[in-house]
Amino acid sequence: MIPKKGMIKSTDAFERLVHWWLAITCIILIITGLGMMFHSFNFLGTPLGGLKNLKLVHNFTGLLFAPALFFAILIWWREAGVFKMPEDLEWIKVAGGYLWHVDDVPETGKYNPGQKAFFLAVAIFGILMVASGLIMWFPLSLPSGLVQWMYPFHALGMLVIFPFVLVHIYLGTIGVPGSARAIFTGYVTRSWAEKQCPGWLKEMEKEGRLEIYGEEKEEAAHG
């Protein structure tokens, strides 16, 4: 997956680091969470030497998840945290052309409303997960009326994040070929960018900030 000449840089190293940091912790949390959520998944604790260790892995992974989430929000909340009207609305109206044939999918920026929704879900429910998880870890130090609510919140977070993650994985891999490259190498093909984020491509080109593999970095490139 080595970038080829002419590919467009879409993510920097820090973004990729944060993404994978977040992704790996999130997946571990989901898997260990499942191990505790369903008795039928209790077996997931077996390789770790029991459910108790699974709980420890879950709890400490949660501690690693929290800073990743913090950085992710820091990095992406501008690009993926704000809907741009009306074009995002238009995009939503046709579901980005994913579900039925759409001749003309409205152009989106770097992240389309679907991706934004995923980001927001992870950001908001991620915070909820961290907060509720911490309280659930030390439930005896807080009033039980408060603690009680942490469990459904945590479950609600799971209900939201887990399916989104699955969608994200699907669309980031086989669903939209060429996407994975962006988060592995930082580069995408021009055609991918034209299809996926034409608005961004146009804007970057206009501002001359586009970094193209094999070409000299332009003056105005942002740091």
Binding site: K5, T173, V176, G178, A180, T189, R190, S191
Partner: peptide, 14 residues
């Protein structure tokens, strides 16, 4: 989704 194009840096993902 077809994200391939006819540009020189083309080529499918994966």
């Amino acid at each position: 989704k077809d994200t391939s194009g006819d540009d020189q840096a083309g080529g499918e993902g994966g």
